[in-house]
Measured scan of single mutants.
Amino acid sequence: KPGPLPPNLDDLKVSELRQQLRIRGLPVSGTKTALMDRLRPFQD
C-alpha cells in the first residue's frame, strides 16, 4: 500500500514523484508539474 504523500509535492524530486506514480499504477511521463497534478488526488 502506498505511503502518505508529503503536503508539498514540490519538495519531491521528479524521480520520487515517478516512484509514487508507479506505486499507484499511474503514467510516469510528463513534466514535474504534470506529475504533481496526477498525484494531487491522492493527497489527504
Score class of each variant (00 low, 15 high):
residue 3 G to C: 01
residue 29 S to L: 07
residue 11 D to Q: 12
residue 21 L to D: 07
residue 9 L to V: 12
residue 31 T to S: 14
residue 6 P to E: 10
residue 28 V to Y: 10
residue 31 T to L: 07
residue 34 A to M: 08
residue 37 D to V: 03
residue 24 R to N: 02
residue 29 S to V: 11
residue 2 P to N: 12
residue 24 R to C: 02
residue 1 K to F: 05
residue 41 P to L: 10
residue 40 R to H: 04
residue 7 P to Q: 15
residue 7 P to D: 13
residue 40 R to K: 15
residue 8 N to Q: 10
residue 40 R to Q: 12
residue 14 V to H: 06
residue 36 M to L: 05
residue 41 P to M: 09
residue 27 P to V: 02
residue 4 P to H: 14
residue 36 M to D: 04
residue 15 S to W: 10
residue 8 N to L: 07
residue 16 E to T: 04
residue 35 L to K: 05
residue 19 Q to E: 13
residue 28 V to C: 15
residue 26 L to V: 02
residue 2 P to S: 15
residue 20 Q to C: 06
residue 42 F to M: 09
residue 8 N to W: 00
residue 29 S to N: 08
residue 2 P to G: 15
residue 33 T to E: 15
residue 36 M to R: 09
residue 13 K to E: 00
residue 39 L to Q: 05
residue 23 I to V: 11
residue 8 N to S: 05
residue 24 R to Q: 02
residue 26 L to F: 07
residue 9 L to H: 04
residue 18 R to S: 04
residue 8 N to K: 10
residue 7 P to A: 14
residue 34 A to S: 09
residue 17 L to W: 01
residue 16 E to P: 00
residue 7 P to R: 15
residue 44 D to A: 11
residue 40 R to S: 11
residue 4 P to T: 15
residue 23 I to S: 13
residue 43 Q to W: 11
residue 14 V to W: 00
residue 37 D to Y: 08
residue 6 P to W: 05
residue 3 G to D: 09
residue 6 P to S: 11
residue 35 L to T: 04
residue 43 Q to D: 15
residue 9 L to I: 08
residue 10 D to P: 04
residue 30 G to R: 01
residue 33 T to V: 13
residue 28 V to W: 10
residue 22 R to N: 06
residue 22 R to T: 08
residue 22 R to P: 01
residue 38 R to P: 09
residue 22 R to L: 06
residue 9 L to D: 01
residue 39 L to T: 03
residue 18 R to C: 14
residue 29 S to W: 05
residue 40 R to C: 04
residue 42 F to D: 11
residue 28 V to N: 06
residue 41 P to A: 13
residue 43 Q to K: 04
residue 8 N to I: 06
residue 6 P to D: 09
residue 41 P to Q: 12
residue 12 L to K: 08
residue 31 T to Q: 08
residue 12 L to S: 08
residue 6 P to M: 10
residue 27 P to D: 14
residue 41 P to W: 10
residue 41 P to V: 11
residue 3 G to Q: 15
residue 29 S to D: 14
residue 37 D to F: 00
residue 23 I to A: 14
residue 21 L to S: 00
residue 22 R to D: 12
residue 38 R to M: 05
residue 7 P to V: 15
residue 20 Q to A: 12
residue 10 D to T: 10
residue 33 T to C: 11
residue 31 T to M: 03
residue 38 R to S: 05
residue 26 L to P: 02
residue 7 P to K: 15
residue 10 D to H: 07
residue 40 R to G: 07
residue 5 L to H: 07
residue 39 L to K: 03
residue 33 T to G: 12
residue 2 P to R: 14
residue 3 G to E: 14
residue 11 D to R: 10
residue 8 N to A: 10
residue 26 L to R: 01
residue 41 P to D: 07
residue 24 R to M: 14
residue 6 P to T: 09
residue 8 N to Y: 10
residue 6 P to V: 10
residue 40 R to P: 07
residue 12 L to V: 04
residue 25 G to I: 01
residue 8 N to R: 11
residue 18 R to T: 06
residue 37 D to P: 00
residue 41 P to S: 13
residue 6 P to I: 07
residue 42 F to A: 13
residue 9 L to A: 01
residue 27 P to M: 07
residue 18 R to E: 10
residue 31 T to V: 09
residue 44 D to N: 09
residue 24 R to P: 05
residue 42 F to N: 02
residue 17 L to K: 07
residue 16 E to G: 02
residue 15 S to H: 13
residue 37 D to A: 08
residue 30 G to V: 01
residue 15 S to I: 09
residue 36 M to G: 02
residue 37 D to Q: 10
residue 39 L to W: 01
residue 2 P to T: 12
residue 29 S to A: 11
residue 43 Q to F: 13
residue 22 R to V: 04
residue 7 P to T: 13
residue 17 L to D: 01
residue 29 S to K: 11
residue 5 L to I: 13
residue 24 R to L: 05
residue 22 R to W: 01
residue 16 E to W: 03
residue 19 Q to H: 06
residue 29 S to R: 06
residue 3 G to N: 09
residue 44 D to C: 07
residue 42 F to Q: 11
residue 27 P to W: 00
residue 6 P to H: 11
residue 41 P to Y: 05
residue 17 L to F: 00
residue 27 P to C: 09
residue 19 Q to S: 08
residue 14 V to E: 09
residue 23 I to D: 12
residue 40 R to W: 02
residue 32 K to H: 01
residue 4 P to A: 13
residue 11 D to A: 14
residue 43 Q to N: 09
residue 23 I to E: 13
residue 24 R to V: 04
residue 39 L to R: 01
residue 36 M to C: 05
residue 42 F to C: 10
residue 2 P to H: 11
residue 37 D to S: 01
residue 22 R to Q: 00
residue 5 L to M: 10
residue 31 T to P: 09
residue 36 M to P: 05
residue 6 P to A: 12
residue 31 T to A: 14
residue 16 E to N: 01
residue 9 L to S: 03
residue 1 K to G: 05
residue 6 P to Q: 08
residue 10 D to W: 14
residue 9 L to M: 04
residue 32 K to F: 03
residue 39 L to F: 02
residue 4 P to S: 14
residue 7 P to H: 15
residue 35 L to H: 00
residue 43 Q to T: 14
residue 12 L to W: 07
residue 12 L to T: 06
residue 32 K to N: 03
residue 5 L to Q: 10
residue 12 L to R: 06
residue 27 P to R: 07
residue 31 T to H: 07
residue 35 L to M: 13
residue 28 V to S: 14
residue 25 G to S: 07
residue 24 R to D: 04
residue 3 G to Y: 11
residue 32 K to Q: 04
residue 29 S to Y: 11
residue 18 R to G: 01
residue 15 S to A: 14
residue 14 V to K: 10
residue 40 R to I: 09
residue 19 Q to T: 05
residue 25 G to W: 00
residue 8 N to V: 12
residue 24 R to Y: 00
residue 14 V to F: 00
residue 38 R to Y: 04
residue 7 P to G: 14
residue 43 Q to S: 11
residue 38 R to L: 02
residue 12 L to D: 05
residue 12 L to G: 03
residue 3 G to H: 13
residue 38 R to H: 00
residue 3 G to V: 14
residue 11 D to S: 15
residue 40 R to N: 02
residue 10 D to A: 15
residue 32 K to I: 05
residue 39 L to M: 06
residue 20 Q to E: 14
residue 19 Q to L: 09
residue 41 P to K: 07
residue 28 V to M: 13
residue 6 P to N: 07
residue 15 S to M: 09
residue 32 K to E: 08
residue 30 G to W: 00
residue 2 P to I: 15
residue 5 L to W: 00
residue 18 R to K: 13
residue 7 P to C: 09
residue 14 V to Q: 00
